[in-house]
């Protein structure tokens, strides 16, 4: 199900009231022309999945947070920010989750190049 990022929270809320209360995963795909952010929701007892798809511009990459609806979104959103450089608005991102390196850029973007010295900094 395709949706706009401005409507995302609304759509997620309405889906939650329909029983889609389990967030399976938030991930993204970099199609270079646009970024595809995917929200996998599940209607838990029935096990039915619903995928929310948000297409965003790589130059203006941000999505609203779903923390208010799903607590499980926390780490996925942090991962999203780290791996795709997609800013998640409406929540704090106090530290990086997975990576401990000195470079810049989002590793899972297609145009990513390694630009850090080959040593890591203790967090």
């Amino acid at each position: 199900m395709k949706t706009e990022r401005n409507e995302l929270v609304q759509v997620a809320k309405s889906l939650k009231t329909q029983g889609y209360s389990y967030l399976v995963k938030i991930t993204a795909v970099d199609y270079e022309k646009y970024l595809d952010v995917l929200y996998f929701l599940r209607n838990m007892p029935a096990g039915k999945d619903e995928v929310l798809e948000v297409q965003i511009d790589p130059a203006d990459a941000w999505v609203p947070t779903l923390m208010g609806e799903f607590e499980a979104a926390d780490w996925y959103e942090r991962e999203l920010f780290e791996m795709f450089g997609i800013e998640v608005k409406g929540r704090s991102m106090e530290r990086l989750l997975l990576e401990k390196w000195n470079g810049t850029g989002a590793p899972l973007r297609k145009n990513f190049t390694w630009n850090a010295p080959y040593e890591t900094e203790g967090s």
Binding site: M83, L96, L97, E99, P107, L108, S123
Partner: peptide
Amino acid sequence: PHIGFLHRGVEK
């Protein structure tokens, strides 16, 4: 929890 010590970037 602070994780990422075993992050090997498998997805990439």
